[in-house]
Amino acid sequence: MDIHQILKHLPHRYPFLLVDRVLEVEPGKNIVALKNVTINEPFFPGHFPHHPVMPGVLILEALAQAAAILSFKTMGTLPDDNSVYYFAGIDGARFKRPVSAGDQLHLCVEIVAQKRGIWKFKAEARVDGQIVTEADLTCAVRQLESNPS
């Protein structure tokens, strides 16, 4: 999937869209996506000016966005204005090494379970084949309440 297809499967936009390309997706199973980390990222000037490091929570967010694409592909639907995809839990998060400008994150996410709009995933982010972040993610797709006029 290129960026145009990704934009159809995620509601996120700059500066919070953290998936650049999808290399593989097998609905109901797994996804491998890419995030190219550049020195132009909006978080680098403040994290940290003397040693730019991608915040770990944003690596987890990138994994969750890849998980969202996998979920929508599995459901055979696209996000709409009446639903939202929430983070519901993060377990066992581990940060093995810093991610810096010039790194390419391989976002590897596998579905562990899905029931009633709750999705559980095993997720890993890799740079040059080495795990930099891993976690078990729980996400939920929820319908928004309509706003009475």
Rank of each mutant, 00 (worst) to 15 (best):
M1C: 02
D2W: 04
I3Y: 11
I6K: 06
H9Q: 13
H9E: 12
H9P: 00
L10I: 05
H12C: 04
H12E: 08
R13H: 04
R13S: 06
Y14F: 14
Y14G: 10
Y14W: 13
L17R: 00
L17I: 11
L17F: 03
V19L: 04
D20H: 09
V22E: 01
L23D: 12
L23T: 00
V25R: 01
P27F: 11
P27K: 07
P27H: 07
K29H: 12
K29F: 05
N30W: 11
I31E: 01
I31G: 03
V32G: 11
A33G: 12
L34N: 05
K35I: 04
V37Q: 01
V37E: 01
T38A: 04
E41M: 04
E41P: 06
P42G: 00
F43S: 07
F44T: 03
F44Q: 05
F44H: 01
G46Y: 03
G46E: 10
H47I: 06
H47A: 04
P49Y: 02
H50P: 01
H50M: 11
P52K: 03
P55G: 11
P55K: 05
G56K: 02
G56N: 06
G56V: 07
L58R: 07
I59T: 09
E61C: 08
Q65C: 01
A66Y: 06
A68G: 15
I69V: 15
S71G: 10
F72Q: 00
T74R: 06
T74E: 05
L78K: 07
P79D: 03
D80M: 05
D80G: 15
D81G: 10
V84F: 13
V84T: 14
Y86S: 02
G89Y: 03
D91T: 09
G92F: 05
A93C: 08
A93L: 06
R94A: 07
K96I: 04
R97M: 12
R97E: 13
R97T: 14
R97C: 08
P98C: 02
P98I: 02
P98F: 01
V99R: 01
V99Y: 05
S100G: 06
A101T: 06
D103P: 03
D103C: 10
Q104N: 12
H106D: 13
H106A: 14
V112R: 12
A113K: 09
A113M: 03
A113N: 13
Q114P: 05
K115W: 10
K115D: 11
R116V: 01
R116S: 14
G117H: 07
G117P: 09
W119G: 03
K122H: 11
K122A: 15
A123Q: 03
E124R: 12
A125K: 00
R126S: 00
V127F: 08
D128H: 11
D128R: 14
G129K: 00
G129L: 01
G129P: 03
G129V: 06
Q130K: 15
I131W: 04
V132N: 01
V132W: 02
T133Y: 01
T133Q: 02
A135V: 04
D136M: 13
C139L: 13
A140L: 07
V141I: 14
V141M: 12
V141N: 11
R142C: 14
Q143R: 15
Q143I: 12
L144T: 14
L144C: 10
L144M: 14
N147V: 12
P148L: 07
